[in-house]
Design a protein around this nucleic acid. Structure first.
Lengths: 309, 309
DNA sequence: GGTGGGCATGCGGAATCCTCATGGAGGCTC
DNA sequence: GAGCCTCCATGAGGATTCCGCATGCCCACC
């Protein structure tokens, strides 16, 4: 039996997605093909690479070992492709950053602007994702660094071994985005009783996650009148008076006219912490440069009301 | 089009052998299969990887570029195989050394003994070969270091770019191995006229190389009475009085009873230089350790008569 | 207990890959 | 300079592999 490039790519993708089906969709195969390919790879490797659970699969020890080498091999071939495609190797100045959705409007653009100014030769690739998907991507070697958001008690992003390295950057109180010309906007704050009855604009919501966008722990059944994943959509819905939504203070610089961010009174603060997460171990020079830039951006944002560096 | 592991392995093997046919034989394929696989790889890469010449093929620029990455990928997968086969990663203490045949009896065993004593955890793999094959192996990333022999004017082992790094270790006069109890052996030296008529024991000889084992530039047509590649065979043939052969002084410690090494009088000295050759660039720690050991062994051998460190 | 997400597997068809054989091009010998 | 040898390219045929479709099974959740 013999390992295959397709098998190794699938190994990485399955490790990253956590599911044969998702990996198949991502790479344009059927679930059946993935199942066979992984089975073949397991036979070639001589050991089971994934433990199968009802909800998906998880890497075994040998699976992690093979993945570590597979990532090196696949990266080398991708580098070969880039080089042969004419793109000169820019001195290995490549780093891949993942981020949670709310970081995309302010933190990521500012970081990229800083880097373009101070390290113009550094090539940064970014990707949005959920906490579990980004954590898996870090483990799969598809990302070098991830910007994640967490709520107390700030558990580690995953439970695998070895634990990910987590560096807290800043914390902020969760706020509510309200129309500037509405009754809330003019007061500068809202009471928890007022928002309980207000129409909400929430994210699409998924089975295992709590609904994002609605203030957590509200009494009764809050009405979700609109759902949207996109922040620009949500904020302009707010500006149009269609409803309100929760928001982190770090998004303040990107809020369009007609929207105000206000704190909620009469209830315990909701704290959100933004952290820089990576695999433990030494990091390359491009990654270190990126870490510095993200820290600097975070420090600047720490000056905003409701934030703490 | 898509690259294949088989294609990459073939790329490396062809680069190392210099010929589709030889690579095919080495890997158990047909020449036809190799030709197609390389053609497919060239299509996948988008550029010609080898220049075809009547005597074989040579890497193009893109070919070298792809090979550089392919070696990384293949090494990673071979490391994965080793790790999955139970062999624990011995702290990356692996180094591969190539050597010219006459180094196999003394220099290589001494080097390994030294290393086993002083660095027992270092894993050294060695391989015998001709100068061109070892040079190609260095370029193909299959060897980390090579011990090569050269004669004046000591040209570089190959003409590729970038030039190989060559560190001369020691030089020695070419000697002649004669029976200890024969007429030559008792005198301690021989004259060029005497050996011209003697029966010689030579190597098998190949079309493009001069015959090894016969004193170069002898007048007339020396008689090659026996041919053998193996040094133990050759030396015992000498001891049996079947003929004489040329030999480097570094082999002295391995010469069996009944054989003497004597210089040739009446003709210009034939100098052989032994060098340590590697790819330019930084070398890993295991390789550095091996370099030190080889230098030490060479320095010891430099004390032999006819040798100079 | 029904339902749904997720993995495994039998089956058929298509694409791939390898071998055998032949052809062409260029050097080397005599 | 003719013949020969080595080396690479390519057409044809056959066996293998690989993928997709469909189905079955298992487990968690409601």
């Amino acid at each position: 039996m013999e390992m295959t490039l397709i098998g190794l790519r699938l190994l990485r993708e399955v490790a990253e997605r956590g599911t044969f089906t998702a990996a198949a969709d991502a790479l344009g195969y059927t679930q059946s093909a993935v199942s066979r390919q992984i089975a073949a790879l397991e036979q070639a490797a001589g050991s089971r690479l994934f433990d199968r659970y009802p909800g998906g699969v998880r890497l075994t020890g040998p699976g992690r070992a093979l993945l570590r080498h597979a990532v090196v091999a696949l990266d080398a071939l991708e580098a070969a492709d880039r080089e042969l495609s004419g793109a000169k190797e820019a001195g290995r100045g490549r780093v891949r950053l993942g981020f949670f959705p709310a970081a995309g409007a302010v933190m990521i653009p500012r970081t990229l602007a800083t880097l373009r100014r101070e390290h113009p030769r550094l090539h940064v690739a970014t990707r949005e994702g959920t906490t579990p998907s980004l954590a898996r991507a870090l483990r799969a070697g598809t990302l070098d660094l991830a910007l994640l958001s967490s709520r107390p008690p700030h558990r580690s992003p995953d439970t695998d071994d070895p634990p990910l390295s987590v560096e807290p950057l800043l914390e902020g109180r969760l706020l509510v985005a309200v129309p500037a010309d509405g009754p809330f906007g003019e007061r500068g704050s809202v009471d928890v009783d007022e928002i309980a009855a207000a129409p909400w604009i929430a994210g699409p919501g998924s089975p295992d996650e709590p609904v994002l966008g609605v203030w957590p722990g509200l009494p009764g059944r809050p009405e979700v009148r609109h759902t949207a994943r996109d922040w620009l959509t949500k904020l302009h819905l707010v500006a149009a008076g269609a409803g309100i939504t929760t928001i982190a203070p770090t998004l303040l610089p990107a809020v369009p006219a007609g929207v105000r961010l206000v704190p909620v009174e009469g209830v315990a603060e909701e704290i959100r912490r933004i952290s820089l997460v990576r695999l433990p171990g030494p990091l390359g020079e491009p990654t270190r440069t990126l870490v510095q830039a993200v820290r600097q951006v975070a420090a600047d944002l720490g000056q905003l009301p409701g934030c703490e560096g």
